[in-house]
């Protein structure tokens, strides 16, 4: 049977130094959804994203992107790594970083030209960063750097967007701007998967959620699976208390 899901993860186990980081994870992400991956530190959230993107080898199981392996479907997937994963002192401008999103389509040897430059400018505008195109990237604030990363994914013009903690260390204004871009993407029928940390904003931002702690605790529409019980299983007893005192989802 050929899966037509944008992302279809089956029996996925990933190990690091023979310690399981992900254990027998199944996941189907339907098209046109905005999905959060939540879970405690060390739950394997980044590992799941990286394995889907072919950056890590699974010990068992498989990942299908629109029914095929990632290598055949690279063009369909855009990736926003964690902001801290790169050196922002690199000698380059915001516009130049955004243009890197075009490199995949260009392939080996071909150079970016006017068309790529125009696409990068348009993407910077979509994230409200058009005035910073020529700015050296180390002179951008954390929120601005995150927007540049988002713009870089937008020029990939992909059907699937994978983001690793795009809200990490950004101000409220940037968070709003990013969320609105993500919701636009969903409205265009694209599929967006986001590693997320703030449980409180899950129901507000996302329509689906995966609760992950090495195993997939639950996955589905937020209204159905984002329950106090599932959160307790995912995070352990401590969060249960915090949620009781705070706002029970």
């Amino acid at each position: 049977m050929v899966s037509e899901y944008p992302i279809h993860v089956e029996d996925l186990t990933v190990a690091y130094h023979d310690e399981p980081v992900l254990w027998d994870v199944d996941l189907q992400v339907p098209e046109g959804t905005l999905m959060a991956i939540v879970g405690p530190n060390g739950a394997g959230k980044s590992t799941l994203i990286k394995t889907i993107l072919g950056l890590m080898e699974p010990a068992a199981g498989q990942v299908l992107i629109y029914g095929q392996g990632y290598a055949q479907q690279r063009q369909q997937v855009a990736y926003v790594p964690q902001r801290g994963s790169v050196d922002w002192d690199f000698p380059t401008s915001a516009l130049d970083v955004v243009m890197m999103g075009c490199y995949g389509r260009l392939g080996w040897f071909r150079r970016p030209a006017g068309r790529e430059r125009a696409a990068a400018r348009a993407a910077l505008e979509r994230v409200g960063m058009q005035d910073f195109a020529a700015r050296q990237i180390s002179q951008l604030s954390g929120g601005q750097q995150q927007r540049v990363f988002l713009a870089r994914a937008l020029v990939q013009d992909a059907r699937i967007y994978m983001m690793d903690e795009p809200f990490q260390g950004v101000d409220a204004l940037t968070e709003k701007a990013i969320v609105s871009v993500l919701q636009d993407l969903r409205a265009q029928g694209r599929t967006v998967v986001v590693v997320h940390h703030d449980l409180d904003s899950v129901p507000q931002y996302f329509d689906r959620v995966l609760l992950l702690n090495v195993r997939a605790v639950a996955a589905g529409p937020v209204a159905e699976v984002f329950t106090p019980e599932n959160i307790r299983i995912t995070y352990g007893a401590k969060v249960k208390l915090a949620l009781k005192n705070g706002n029970g989802h």
């Binding site: 997937v77 790594p81 380059t92 890197m100 490199y103 040897f109 150079r111 970016p112």
Partner: peptide, 22 residues
């Protein structure tokens, strides 16, 4: 000259370079 773009990307962001197939 041949690999300017590839060297730049993989030096700045190794993960994206890998994800894009370089």
């Amino acid at each position: 000259l041949l690999f300017y773009k590839e060297l730049k990307l993989s030096t700045f962001d190794t993960e994206l370079a890998a994800a894009l197939g370089f």
